[in-house]
Nucleic acid binder design. Structure first.
Lengths: 207, 207
DNA sequence: TTCATAAATGAACACCGTTCATTATATTTG
DNA sequence: CAAATATAATGAACGGTGTTCATTTATGAA
């Protein structure tokens, strides 16, 4: 049954080539340019062909999102070499921000766009959105370690992780959505850093 | 020159009726259904007519955004009856969250959608996005009052306001974008409240 | 009543996601 | 090898989007 296997392999390869083309479009041209027709052009196939490999565009975006979360999780993983919990927490926060700055289009895909999550909902699985959960769990682990080490004084690591996530995500999201336009361009950069620093400080001593 | 005045009045009235129709569509049907054609249908005019009153869709969205920020600013204004700075800060945070829950489509328009800010950029004014600035200034005022009263111990009220904004916005944005799907539906509500409570607590005593 | 100005529109353009009958290719069977 | 079958790919269409512009309609001035 070598033929069936090769067909299977061909199929996953083409599927991956569609994802690669889409990701390339995402990064190079921005999410607005990621249309089924543009993807089809990039791989030199007909638009209809994509629907042989993905149920619809949301499913394609969801697959792309999962890939992107893999990259973020990898970034997160690297902070566990840092010993001190507070420093480690600071590092993971900066990884999040750095990712948002360096890959704004992927950030949008992962944390802003509706499409991927609609695919998640359409699937209706019992354990939905594992890639997101996996990334968050790393933040929870950082918090739990800090609690266990007696550095953070709270009981629920998940709640603490949620607070930290919201803080960092809030900064990243407001920046990317251009809502920091109320500040001058020069101020925009500094106020984000200063807000981050203040948050760190507040974690230690309160406001 | 009574006629010219009436024409002027008619024009602003029609402009407003377009905005009203669009806002109604926004709230009742969601932002996806707000198309130039749907708005035109609602006011029983041709789509092309809207372009006599708005340069393009982004300008229309921007006008709508300004209206919505007026409502939020009003909500914010009501917290200044509260005397204690810490309580006042907590109240303004909850006003933000409540607005996001009660008017999810307006929240999207104000803080997530790209369209309105593209209009802001296209205008290229020296003092861009005054409505956003006005809302933020109220948060800054709360922080400054708290600093002056010796309740908050930091020097830069704007940076402190930025931190608070990011925290609250992060929660609201992650919720609306369905990224809290990593939690069970029941947990979603509680963890947001608990994260808010923890943040308040951290402001007082640190983590 | 004619003329000029302003307002409104129908039709078109180029895009979008998606579906489906038809065509082309590859594999299996007689 | 030829014919039949199964798989893969596609062209064309449908209904939607924002936007433009020549043409038509309505309104106030002469």
């Amino acid at each position: 049954m070598g033929i069936a296997e090769r067909k299977e392999r061909d199929k996953t390869e083409r599927r991956q080539s569609i994802l690669d083309a889409a990701q390339h479009l995402f990064i190079e041209q921005g999410f607005e340019k990621v249309s089924m027709r543009n993807i089809a052009d990039a791989i030199e196939y007909s638009p209809a062909t994509i629907y042989l490999y993905f149920k619809d565009k949301n499913e394609l975006l969801f697959a792309l999102q999962n890939q992107a979360f893999g990259r973020l999780a990898q970034e997160f993983e690297s902070v566990f070499t840092i010993q001190h919990p507070a420093e480690r927490l600071n590092a993971i926060g900066h990884k999040y921000l750095a990712f948002a700055f360096e890959h704004p289009e992927l950030f949008e895909l992962m944390f802003v766009m509706n499409g991927p999550m609609e695919a998640v909902q359409a699937r209706g699985e019992a354990e939905p959105w594992g890639s997101g959960r996996a990334a968050f769990d790393r933040v929870v682990r950082v918090m739990q370690d800090g609690i266990d080490a007696g550095v953070f004084h709270t009981s629920d690591a998940e709640v603490a992780a949620m607070m930290v996530w919201a803080q960092v995500h809030g900064l990243a999201a407001l920046f990317r959505s251009k809502r920091l336009m109320i500040f001058s361009e020069a101020r925009r950069q500094t106020i984000m850093e200063e807000a981050m620093n203040l948050f760190n400080q507040v974690l230690h001593h309160g406001l």
